[in-house]
Design a protein around this nucleic acid. Structure first.
Lengths: 225, 225
DNA sequence: CTCCTTCCCTAACAATTGTTTGGTAGGTTA
DNA sequence: TAACCTACCAAACAATTGTTAGGGAAGGAG
């Protein structure tokens, strides 16, 4: 819901094969509607951002990956920064709605944690690139006014996690001798940083990874006496 | 160990107060021997790298933080990249020696894990900036030949962790129903990513954080029946 | 056919980047 | 004192950066 889009009035025109200037590569010869083009380009940009880092990514690399020239990107987007903005905002919007759904379900503390963790890994499965970018760039983007919403989102998520943990301790479902803030950080970090090694379609799906991690953090890896 | 240093022939000359050109800031009026100057500058560079990211950090920012002009850095270092190189190599060298000491102690699996985790948090306490840089930049630095040793180090560390976990499973100290590779990733990520929020001299020291995390991952956060 | 819109290209721009070259103040050594 | 070294400054360099302006090909609408 953030940022005014310079939407190039959605149409139904087609794209064609352009006279590829030797070195560059065309991706599609087939046609496709315009509104999807924007998301297509954002997905491409997100992949490059995630792989190389935002600052290290030049608009020429993005354009190259998208099969066009640097200047052409500015028909769709205001700036390189607004691409990043839209990627992160979209991701956070979706994540927030998923978390809200979990919290509104009225589950117990343990089940809520399980659901939050599972939804997080699912989000990584869907938007791996966006999560990786968020993980890497968020700390210093947060200092810029434009990305202030990153801090706002983080506070909201923190409240959800901490509240659930506290509820669990009060209900004697979780141990009372652990520092809740530290536990929150451990869980949050482990979940999100997984975006850096997770590969969709790999050996483990998001639910399986969530199950394993939940088993680890809830029951521990030590054998019980 | 790595990279030939353009060491400006260690001497014992002193530095003086320079004519500060208005905007820039001097750090020291006192004198100090030269060999330390290099480490001083590297520490400064590491802080800026960690805070802003390597690519986003200009040599002018580093120079500014060090109280000198951009070109002057090239008296001490070959390039911006070689600063990064030396920071990471130094960190990895020290970490490796600490890990080796732990592994050579002949502890049981559980105690080895405890020691590795504790040493890792201690390393964060000592070289927070270097760890943060390693965490952020390692994935795509690894693709450059110059930083190939990052992959080598990672493999060595992975072997240490996985070997210990396997030993623990064989000795029935750790649960056999968990995926060992996943567990390793969870632990590794949680430990290293802590460098992004840890502040030396803060509420919890490295040993306390290690204790809390070990308690979480070994025993779990759920209350036992 | 003509007009219009969509989507891209070509070509350039100013700013910023890492780096180099030559100089120089101040201390040490002879 | 004279020669010398250390550690910096001043000023510039070429390359790369994000971004802009104008043009043009293709297809739909009339």
């Amino acid at each position: 819901m953030r940022g005014e889009r310079r939407t190039p009035a959605s149409n139904t025109s087609d794209r064609k094969t352009a006279v590829s200037s030797s070195s560059r590569s065309r991706r599609k010869t087939v046609t496709s509607p315009a509104p999807e083009r924007r998301e297509e380009l954002l997905a491409t940009a997100a992949e490059v951002f995630a792989a190389q880092g935002y600052r290290a990514t030049t608009v020429r690399k993005i354009a190259d990956a998208a099969g066009m020239l640097a200047g052409s990107l500015y028909y769709h987007f205001d700036s390189k920064e607004s691409m990043l903005d839209e990627i992160l905002a979209t991701f956070l919007d979706e994540l927030r709605s998923r978390y809200d759904a979990v919290l509104a379900a009225g589950l117990g503390p343990r089940e809520t944690i399980e659901a939050l963790v599972t939804e997080s890994f699912r989000e990584i499965d869907r938007h791996r690139a966006a999560v990786a970018i968020y993980q890497k760039e968020s700390p210093h983007l947060r200092t810029q006014p434009r990305f202030g919403y990153l801090t706002a989102s983080q506070r909201k998520f923190e409240k959800a996690w901490l509240g659930t943990l506290e509820r669990g301790v009060a209900a004697k479902v979780f141990r009372a001798d652990l520092d809740i803030r530290l536990t929150y950080r451990f869980v949050r970090d482990t979940v999100w940083v997984a975006a850096s090694w997770y590969r969709p379609g790999g050996q483990h799906g998001p639910e399986e990874i969530a199950r394993q991690y939940l088993s680890t953090v809830l029951e521990g890896i030590a054998v019980r006496d």
